[in-house]
Amino acid sequence: MVPTMMLAADSSRDAHRAEALRGLADAVTRRGEAPVVSSFGSADDLRSAVEAVEGPLVVVPAYLAGSDRASAELLAGLDLDHRFDACTTAPLGAVPSIVGSLARRLQQAGWRPGDGVVLAADGTSDQDERHQLTSVARMLSRRVQSPVQVGYLSAWAPSVTDAVERLRRRGQDRVCVAAWQLVEGEGHGRLRDLDATAVTAPLWPAGVVVDTLLAQHRAATARLAA
């Protein structure tokens, strides 16, 4: 029996983001690899959704590591210890295909060789997610052959604004922002207000996002069957 795939994230305060996440869930469903349900709301919504699923279940976070504090807190509060047939995967992180898609987004946005680059993340207190962010910055730096500075929207330092200004003080006239975000939402709107040369679009609707989410589900399915 193929486990149900539950895409989960917090979108309770952002209707535009919720719509984008539903579009992502529809795209995953159309692949036909597994039964797909979603929970894009509060902690109570997530618990209710989990309880409604009979049989094996894989909860797949629908956000990028370090990109969404609210969703990280939501998933951290989910207790599946009472379910021998259920597990949660890690959020998408330093996956070569995902970072490659981000590099292509930079080129599409107007990045040119030699431009300064800021990786814009929401911020996180989770050490694993912070490690993923550091790895993403290193991988992106190798892709663009230029140093990549991490900046944060709502936690830790430097802020995205400070990171952009720091590169400008170092002589970078052109600074591009690589948005470490899965879908369009309020956070991306704040990035567009920056004094940056260019800001990338969120990673979805790149097909690699669906590919990677399904790959996580397949890996978790194998673990549950072991």
Rank of each mutant, 00 (worst) to 15 (best):
R105Q: 13
A86D: 13
R218C: 04
T161F: 03
V59C: 06
L182A: 01
A34W: 02
V164P: 00
R17D: 09
V59D: 00
L224C: 12
G55I: 08
V95I: 13
R143S: 15
G123A: 06
A94T: 09
A215S: 10
S67K: 10
V199T: 11
V175W: 00
P56H: 09
A120Y: 02
G151M: 11
G110A: 04
D193S: 12
D45N: 14
L21W: 05
M6V: 05
P56Y: 03
R169P: 00
R17E: 13
G123R: 06
S67I: 12
L214K: 03
T134N: 10
D85F: 01
A94N: 12
V36D: 03
R83T: 00
R83H: 03
P56R: 14
Q172C: 11
R112I: 15
V99R: 13
A198S: 11
C87R: 12
W111F: 07
F84S: 14
V148R: 04
L21K: 04
S125H: 09
Y63I: 05
R69M: 10
D26E: 09
V58Y: 01
D85G: 02
L167T: 04
V175I: 08
V209W: 00
A27N: 09
A219K: 15
R130Q: 10
T134S: 14
V136K: 03
A220V: 14
P96W: 05
A163Y: 01
L21A: 01
